[in-house]
């Protein structure tokens, strides 16, 4: 596994400027405009980088080469997830540092906690959706699958939005208001939900990958 993680890292760090420039840009823009949503984007950006490495694997035929070595299909999938998780955690640390040390005057501690948890959760969910799609369909077809998926989510979001201030069962705001969670509990729920989604996504990806023929 360590060898696979090293390979992911070497490929990722091949062009550090491509990683660092957007990170610096979002951090600086977030700090100067005091827009914490921009800072929250940092883990999201670096968390999906391992997904982009699947294209490199496809073009170099790495997967076939790796299966000639003492790696199982499960190892290859796990390396992608682990790399995403590690990158998201580093991004969250960076986001937290900026929120705590630079933006503390604009936010309360519970707000900060909620923002960090939301940032972590969303950053985990995105690769959790993208990885199985890419592993199942390949990077080219996965884009189409993602578009379909986004359309479905869009419809669901629109339904929920239209249902606001109504008696509809899709009124999410009303549901949340009824539950009356404290920001701390809500933060914990975000993280737990994201962790469960990632675990399920990993299990699905392993099943998909085990069926793959090289």
């Amino acid at each position: 596994m360590k060898g696979l993680l090293k390979k992911e890292w070497f490929v990722l760090w091949n062009k550090p400027i491509m990683i660092l420039i957007p990170l610096i840009l979002f951090a600086v823009m977030g700090i100067t405009s005091k827009n914490f949503f921009m800072v929250m984007y940092l883990p999201l950006y670096i968390g999906i980088l391992p997904v982009s490495l699947i294209t490199t694997d496809e073009t170099s035929r790495w997967e076939r080469f790796a299966l000639g070595m003492p790696y199982s299909r499960k190892d290859l999938v796990s390396a992608k997830y682990l790399m995403s998780l590690l990158l998201v955690l580093s991004g969250v640390l960076l986001t937290s540092a900026i929120l705590v040390f630079v933006m503390r005057s604009t936010l309360t501690v519970p707000q900060m906690l909620l923002l960090i948890a939301a940032s972590f959760a969303v950053s985990l969910i995105l690769p959790s959706v993208l990885l199985p799609l890419n592993l199942k369909f390949g990077t080219a077809k996965a884009r189409l699958a993602l578009a379909v998926l986004l359309a479905v989510f869009g419809c669901m979001a629109a339904t929920a939005f239209n249902a606001e201030n109504s008696d509809s069962p899709f009124n999410v705001t009303a549901w949340l208001a009824k539950l009356q969670f404290s920001p701390q509990i809500l933060a914990l729920l975000f993280v737990a939900a994201a962790a469960v989604i990632m675990a399920v996504s990993w299990a699905v990806s392993v099943i998909i990958y085990r069926r793959k023929q090289f």
Partner: peptide, 25 residues
């Protein structure tokens, strides 16, 4: 195993390969 196409990512060099294989075998 030596496949007909050595599937190493194109940006890697021999030093990278050595470090990866050290933790593979």
């Amino acid at each position: 195993v030596v496949p007909d196409e050595i599937g190493l990512p194109e940006m890697l060099n021999v030093r990278h390969v050595e470090k990866i294989m050290r933790d593979t075998f």
